[in-house]
Amino acid sequence: MMANNGEGEGPADGGPVRHVPVLLRQVLEALAPSVGETVVDGTFGAGGYSRAIVEAGANVIGIDRDPTAIAAAGPVIAASHGRLSLIEGRFGDMAEIVDEAVGGLVDGVVLDIGVSSMQIDTASRGFSFQKDGPLDMRMSGAGPSAADVVNMLKVGDLARVLSFLGEERQAGRIARAIEARRTERPFETTLDLAAVVGRVVGRKPQDRIDPATRTFQALRAYVNDELGELARALVAAERILKPGGRLVVVTFHSLEDRIVKRFIRERSSAPSGSRHLPDVQHVPATFSARNKAEAGDEAEIAANPRARSAKLRAATRTDAPARTGPDAEDFIELPALADLPRSGVTR
Rank of each mutant, 00 (worst) to 15 (best):
R208Y: 10
R173S: 15
L219P: 04
A146W: 01
G143Y: 01
K204Q: 15
R208P: 09
E188N: 10
E238T: 04
E229K: 01
T215W: 12
A236M: 03
G228D: 10
L191M: 15
E238N: 09
E168M: 06
V196M: 02
V235R: 03
Y222G: 05
F129L: 08
P205D: 13
V235H: 04
Q217C: 06
T213C: 08
L227T: 01
L153Y: 03
T189L: 11
G156Y: 09
D225I: 04
Q130R: 15
E238Q: 14
T213A: 12
M152W: 07
E226C: 09
E168A: 00
R214H: 12
A231S: 14
P134K: 02
V196G: 06
R176I: 04
L135P: 04
S145C: 08
V200Q: 11
R182S: 00
P211Y: 02
I209K: 15
P144E: 10
Y222H: 02
T189G: 08
D210F: 04
A146T: 02
A233T: 00
A180W: 08
Q130G: 09
G202D: 13
R208C: 10
T183M: 15
F216V: 03
V150P: 03
L158E: 01
V201D: 02
R199G: 13
E184W: 11
G133V: 10
M137E: 04
D207W: 10
Q206D: 15
G202P: 13
R160Y: 10
P186D: 06
V161N: 01
T213E: 09
R182D: 07
D207N: 13
P186N: 05
T190I: 07
E167Y: 09
S128F: 05
G202A: 06
A147E: 03
R181D: 13
G141E: 05
L230K: 02
D192S: 13
T215K: 06
Q170H: 13
R214Q: 12
A236W: 02
Q130K: 15
G172Q: 12
R160L: 13
L135F: 07
G143Q: 08
T215P: 13
D207E: 11
E229H: 07
P144M: 09
D225P: 09
D192Y: 13
T213D: 10
V200E: 09
S145I: 01
D157C: 07
A147T: 04
L191H: 12
L227W: 06
L193I: 11
A175C: 09
L158T: 00
E188P: 04
N151R: 01
I209T: 14
L219H: 00
A233R: 00
L191G: 07
A194T: 05
R176G: 04
A142K: 15
V155K: 07
T189F: 11
S128C: 03
P144Q: 06
R169L: 14
E167M: 11
A233V: 02
T189K: 15
T213S: 11
E229A: 06
N151T: 04
R214A: 03
R181Q: 14
A231W: 01
R182M: 08
R203G: 10
E167W: 06
A146G: 03
V150Q: 00
L165F: 14
